[in-house]
Design a protein around this nucleic acid. Structure first.
Length: 561
RNA sequence: GCGCCCGUAGCUCAAUUGGAUAGAGCAUCGGCCUUCUAAGCCGAGGGUUGCAGGUUCAAUCCCUGCCGGGUGCGCCA
């Protein structure tokens, strides 16, 4: 509805230009906004206030001229000028009816658009190293990342979900040593235990599985335990495969699937690291100092230069990072979003600087980053810090097992990523109005229930009859609900464009609230055919939008609760 | 010390990319089941948007400086 109103305003501005009321060379950005207060109509614009200065008129006077210049139309029933110069639009019955019609006709497609025009976008998220079960922070990344992917898919993008991990670094070595120590029967308190070894119980299970000769398979790894406690290389391979499988199972339980698992080690074996290094050297952005090779990242906004190749000959982590991102670019992803914990934010400047130094035409601000802040888990008013298996942190699995997938996903995705999140287990577990997940799902189930009752009563409903009877929706609460439904497409559009999936959760909470209020005040299955058919059409439209929105969050929409 | 993020009702959080009287939920208090699911609804109280300036017709939002919390500052990833 916004674009149509904007068009009317644009025509009005053009008309005022020909009358020399506003300068002809002015190209104002026309903003049409939803009103917060229904006393201000359904939509509003600040256009008159924006144009007041260049036109040399006071805003209210200009607003009147704009209103007078609006073309004839059937969208708007009434236009008012209010406050300092706002122009408020009241939608006609015809346009609200068209909103509900759009939902019923487009069904699962309602709210989707083609902003992406089929272009490729890659979202990298989770990217946990295979050194243990996924923790709650990975869970937040998984929820936010996957919801973002769903949003991008809903807005016409060709999405690739990618998981990157280091399968060869010092951490993996430490993991192998920890497993080996367990294979040999050592415990963390023994003298031979590796320094900073992984102490969680899962290491014991891993060691037992290896010594048992088990075969483990994950999405991208498969390996059989060699049963040899002295073969560190075999242990390393087995441990990586084992933990990758474990993380796979966690992700599966969370309903998150990846298209690509990318191994850091492949960047070396495929020569991509070396290639990137050579390009950086050739471009003249490197220098040797103190036996190390440095990249002049300060040329690109970093606060100090960074070591690329250490004195021991190995590369620092950001070199493969740069090579990895060059590879993403070469794969044709002009839009890339990296979802990661905010504790890694310092890599952003470095990676972007490295990419600029490659001189390959990669835009300065590429790629996008979505950084999520820490998650604190609370139970019984106290912070929960450890899990039994992992020892030192709360696992994603613990949460899914305890509060369920739907609630976990909702809670982790419903907050803006860049603010810290308190995960209240008691709240997420509660099956009551306290819990926004159930609140939204319940609204969906209620509509389904109405239709079941309708069938039980031997009555029928047709979409056609419903749409033909929409004029029977005369109540204020009904009109508000319809307008709310009409806003859904903008919420999707905007959330996807700014990489902020939490808006969907907020919107659904509001929509469910409006629906519950209406449900309680008005009976749907009434005698009057027109009213019943119209209300059922509205209820079905609400159900459809809730269903569409929950799908974007990866949360189920139950028909019965 | 420097960089980045955050600071909104007692608590958890929103606020449509600068708009009108800052909104929900929880908690507290008071109501509503003979009626399509009470996993619900209605009502009440609760605020100097951390503080102080600035830009603007208009600031929770942008700028500057403080205060407080988080996080990063490695030839670790």
């Amino acid at each position: 509805m916004k674009p149509q109103i904007a068009e009317l305003l644009s025509a009005a501005v053009d008309s005022l230009k020909t009358q020399n009321v506003v300068p002809a060379d002015l190209e104002p950005r026309i903003q049409v906004e939803n009103t917060r207060d229904k006393a201000h109509g359904d939509l509003a614009t600040n256009l008159a206030m924006m144009l007041a200065k260049p036109a040399g008129k006071n805003p209210r006077e200009l607003a009147q001229l704009l209103v007078d210049a609006l073309p004839d139309n059937t969208l708007v029933e009434k236009v008012e000028i209010a406050g300092p110069g706002f122009i408020n639009f009241y939608l006609s019955d015809e346009s609200t009816a068209s909103l509900i019609k759009a939902v019923l006709e487009q069904k699962a497609q309602y709210g989707r658009n083609n902003d992406g025009e089929g272009r490729k976008v890659q979202v990298e998220f989770v990217s946990a190293n295979p050194t243990g079960p996924l923790h709650i922070g990975h869970g937040r990344g998984a929820a936010v990342g996957d919801c973002l992917c769903r949003l991008l898919e809903a807005t016409g993008w060709d999405v690739t979900r990618e998981f990157y991990y280091n399968d060869a670094g010092a951490q993996i070595n430490n993991l192998a040593l920890s497993v080996q120590a367990r294979c040999k029967g050592l415990t963390p308190d023994d003298a031979g235990w590796p320094e900073d070894g992984y102490r969680g119980d899962y290491i014991v299970e891993l060691a037992n599985s290896y010594m048992n000769g088990d075969t483990v398979e994950s999405a991208d790894q498969s390996f059989t335990g060699a049963k040899d406690a002295d073969d560190l290389e075999a242990i390393r391979h087995f441990a990586v495969a084992y933990l990758r499988r474990e993380q796979d199972l966690d992700l599966k339980a969370f309903a998150v699937d990846f298209d690509v698992y990318f191994l850091e080690s492949s960047l070396y074996s495929d020569g991509k690291v070396e290639d990137a290094v050579q390009r950086l050297i050739a471009n003249g952005y490197t220098y040797e100092d103190g036996g190390a090779l440095w990249l002049r990242t300060t040329d690109f906004g970093d606060d100090k230069d960074r070591v690329m190749r250490k004195t021991d000959g190995g590369y620092t982590y950001f070199v493969p990072d740069v090579a990895y991102h060059l590879d993403k670019w070469n794969r044709g992803f002009t839009r890339v979003v990296n979802e990661q914990g905010a504790d890694h934010h310092s890599t952003i400047t470095r990676v972007r600087a490295g990419l600029q130094a490659l001189n390959t035409g990669i835009p300065k601000g590429w790629p996008d980053y979505v950084l999520h802040q820490m998650v604190t888990v609370m139970r019984g008013g106290e912070e929960v810090k450890i899990s039994k298996r992992a020892g030192s942190y709360v696992t994603l699995r613990d949460l899914i097992d305890e509060v369920g997938r739907d609630a976990t996903r909702y809670f982790l995705a419903a907050r803006k990523a860049d603010s810290q999140l308190t995960f209240d287990i008691d709240l997420a577990r509660s099956q009551s109005s306290d819990n926004p997940v159930y609140y939204i799902q319940y609204a969906h189930a209620r509509v389904c229930s109405i239709f079941r009752k309708l069938a039980e009563a031997g009555q029928s409903w047709s979409e056609e009859l419903g749409l033909a009877s929409l004029a029977a929706l005369e109540l204020e609460s009904e009109k508000e609900l319809i307008v709310k439904l009409g806003r859904y497409p903008e919420v999707v559009k905007r959330s996807a464009s700014i990489n902020e999936p939490h808006n969907i959760a907020t919107y659904l909470r509001e929509l469910a609230g409006d629906f519950h209020a209406w449900y309680n005040s008005e009976k749907t299955l009434v005698e009057d055919d027109a009213v019943r058919n119209a209300r059922l059409a509205l209820a079905e439209a609400v159900r459809q939008v809730i269903n569409n929105g929950l799908d974007l969050l990866g949360v189920s929409a139950p028909e019965e609760m």
